[in-house]
Design a protein around this nucleic acid. Structure first.
Lengths: 129, 129
DNA sequence: ATTTCATAGTTCGGTTGCCGATATATGCCG
DNA sequence: CGGCATATATCGGCAACCGAACTATGAAAT
């Protein structure tokens, strides 16, 4: 599963949202670095609905504009939970490997490798761009 | 960055490997669920070398068979570290959202949502397939 | 002796999912 | 009145991955 798809499921995990609401939620959840394009969003929405991971909850007409609300299905939630485990496992595996890297300083992992709050664009100390 | 690419960088983080060695390392690191296809592997290797994330360390001829060893560059290591932070952030965001999900039992997160060891194929308790 | 498997790499066609642009429509703000 | 935020639909193109076929050697199994 790719990042945009993962973030769409994530956005819908807390509550049903309509397309544009998903765009905003994903922007927020990703810390501002993933802005879903219409082609990505509606393509993914159709695909995920086909796969049964999400469902149309209801359709609302607000001021002439259509709002189609999507809800995460139970199967979608289970898929997302599995995917979270997968991401965590991948992150741990990479970290373990990086610690064995020639030149790696074992005791410095809590400085060099952050565990949350990515601080986008911040280079690892001592690691050249 | 997609999963196969991430795992290739991960495999090379500890030490240089040749193509076939990467396939085995990725299989191991992913807990057996990612078996790199040749098309994926050699395509990714060329691309990553172009991007400067990996470098050819040396070429060896063992019993008529060529072995081309690749090494993770400093820039590749920095990219991988950033990617690990990204994965962790995504995982946390999804978990936070899932806890707000209608029907989610707050105190049950350590049962329902595992933090490591995905246990592939295991459904979330109470969640239908 | 021959087949099969593991190792090791190359190439090519096909599919999927994402990107980017365009289009449509309404209401608000300057 | 033009631009912006809201809201969805659609289309062409591309990048990355998948799957299969091919070459080649040595070891193990039949």
């Amino acid at each position: 599963m790719q990042e945009p798809t993962f973030l769409i499921l994530t956005a819908l995990a807390a509550r049903p949202l309509h397309g544009y609401g998903i765009v905003q939620a994903v922007l927020d959840l990703s810390g501002g670095d993933v802005k879903l394009r219409p082609g990505t969003l509606y393509g993914a929405l159709d695909r995920l609905a086909d796969q049964g991971l999400i469902e149309v909850e209801r359709e609302e007409a607000v001021e002439g504009r259509l709002r189609r609300y999507y809800r995460l299905s139970d199967s979608g939630a289970a898929t997302l939970v599995a995917e979270v485990g997968r991401l965590r496992q991948r992150a741990s595996a990479a970290e373990t490997q990086l610690r064995q890297r020639p030149g790696a300083v074992p005791g410095l992992s809590r400085f060099a490798v952050f565990s949350a709050a990515p601080a986008r664009g911040a280079a690892a100390p001592g690691a050249p761009a």
